[in-house]
C-alpha cells in the first residue's frame, strides 16, 4: 500500500514531457505487413537529450516521425506534455538528414521560414535569427544562399531554423549522417554548445554509437526483429562535454556496452545463425569423421582398380 502514494509522488516529480507508450507501427503492403516498430515505450523528461540508437531499418526514424506527428502509430499512444499527438505541432522543431533549405532564399530568410509559416511577427524574430546564426558561427553569412554554403554550414542553418520559434522539443533525424566524419565531429561539439545556450528537450536519431554517447543524457537502443527497445541507458559523462571525453576509458567502455547490446540484439538472429552454424559445424565434423573412411575406401577402391 505505501508504494502507491510513493509512485504518484514520483510521477509528479518527473512528469515526462514526451511519453511514448506501447507504440507500434505496421505498414500494410500488398505482400505482407511490415512491422517497423513492434513495441516501444520511452519517457523523455523536460530538458533531457535522448538518442534513439540502432542499425538501419530498426524503426528509430519511424518512431521519431510519429513523435513529430508526421506518421500515425498503428497502436499505442504518444503524448507531449500530457496531450496526445495527432498531428504536427508548433512547439516542435524538426531537423532532417538533409538541410532542406529553400535554395532561392538567403540564410537569414531560411532561418525565418518557420516564422512566416507560423505567422509570427517577423520583426520580433529577426534579432533572434542573427543571434542564432552567430551562435553556430555563421555570422556574416546571412545573405548567402544555400548553394554557397558547405554541407555542415547548411545543416547549421537548419538547426537555427528549427530553433527560431523557440520550440519546446527538438526532433533530429540523423541530422549529421550525410556529413563527412570530420565535419560530423565538429557538428556534435557545436550542437552540445548550442544546447548549453538554448536548453531544449531533444530526441536524436542516429546510427552512430559514438555520436549517441557523446551527445546524450540517455541512449535508447532499438533493434531486433521485430524491432523493440532493448536498452535504455544513462550516459555518465558530466556536462559541458568537449571532445576530450571521447578519449577517456569510461567513454570507450560505454560505447563498447552499447555496441555489444546492438550485436546481442542481432545476436538473437546471429545466435540463431551461430546455432545453425554450430549445428552445421557439428554436422561438418561428423561428416568429416565419416568422410575420412569414405576417402580411405575410395582410395582403397582406386588402388584396387
Amino acid at each position: 500500500m505505501p508504494s502507491v502514494p510513493l509512485k504518484a509522488d514520483h510521477l509528479v516529480a518527473e512528469a515526462p514531457l514526451v511519453s511514448v507508450a506501447n507504440v507500434q507501427k505496421t505498414y500494410f503492403t500488398r505482400q505482407s505487413p511490415i512491422h517497423a516498430v513492434a513495441s516501444a515505450s520511452v519517457d523523455v523528461a523536460r530538458g533531457e537529450f535522448v538518442s534513439l540508437l540502432g542499425p538501419s531499418g530498426c524503426g528509430k526514424s519511424t518512431l521519431l516521425m510519429m513523435i513529430a506527428g508526421l506518421e500515425k502509430p498503428t497502436a499505442g499512444v504518444i503524448t507531449l506534455a500530457g496531450a496526445a499527438v495527432a498531428a504536427p505541432r508548433r512547439d516542435i522543431g524538426v531537423i532532417f538528414q538533409d538541410a532542406t533549405l529553400l535554395p532561392w532564399k538567403s540564410t537569414l530568410e531560411n532561418v525565418l521560414f518557420p516564422i512566416r509559416i507560423l505567422k509570427l511577427p517577423l520583426d520580433k524574430y529577426r534579432d533572434r535569427a542573427h543571434e542564432l546564426l552567430k551562435m553556430v558561427g555563421l555570422a556574416g553569412f546571412e545573405n548567402k544562399k544555400p548553394g554557397e554554403l558547405s554541407g555542415g554550414m547548411r545543416q547549421r542553418v537548419a538547426i537555427c531554423r528549427a530553433l527560431i520559434h523557440d520550440p519546446e522539443i527538438l526532433l533530429m533525424d540523423e541530422p549529421f549522417s550525410a556529413l563527412d566524419a570530420i565535419t560530423r565531429d565538429q557538428m556534435n561539439v557545436a550542437l552540445s554548445e548550442i544546447l548549453e545556450a538554448y536548453r531544449k528537450t531533444v530526441i536524436f536519431v542516429t546510427h552512430s554509437i559514438r555520436e549517441a554517447a557523446f551527445l546524450s543524457d540517455r541512449v535508447v537502443v532499438m533493434g531486433g526483429r521485430p524491432s523493440t527497445i532493448i536498452l535504455d541507458k544513462k550516459m555518465p559523462f558530466a556536462r559541458p562535454r568537449r571532445f576530450e571525453i571521447e578519449e577517456t576509458q569510461e567513454f570507450a567502455q560505454v560505447c563498447r556496452e552499447l555496441r555489444l547490446t546492438i550485436e546481442a540484439a542481432h545476436g538473437q538472429r546471429q545466435g540463431h545463425g551461430q546455432g545453425h552454424g554450430q549445428g552445421h559445424g557439428l554436422g561438418g565434423a561428423r561428416a568429416d569423421g565419416r568422410q575420412q573412411p569414405v576417402k580411405a575406401s575410395a582410395a582403397g577402391a582406386s588402388i584396387i582398380e
Partner: peptide, 20 residues
C-alpha cells in the same frame, strides 16, 4: 524533404503552394 518540413511546421496547403 521540404514538403515534410512544411507539414512538420503545420503549414497549410495554400502556404506550401505559395511559399514552396
Amino acid at each position: 524533404g521540404i514538403l515534410r518540413l512544411c507539414r512538420a511546421l503545420t503549414a497549410t496547403e495554400w502556404q506550401i503552394f505559395t511559399s514552396v
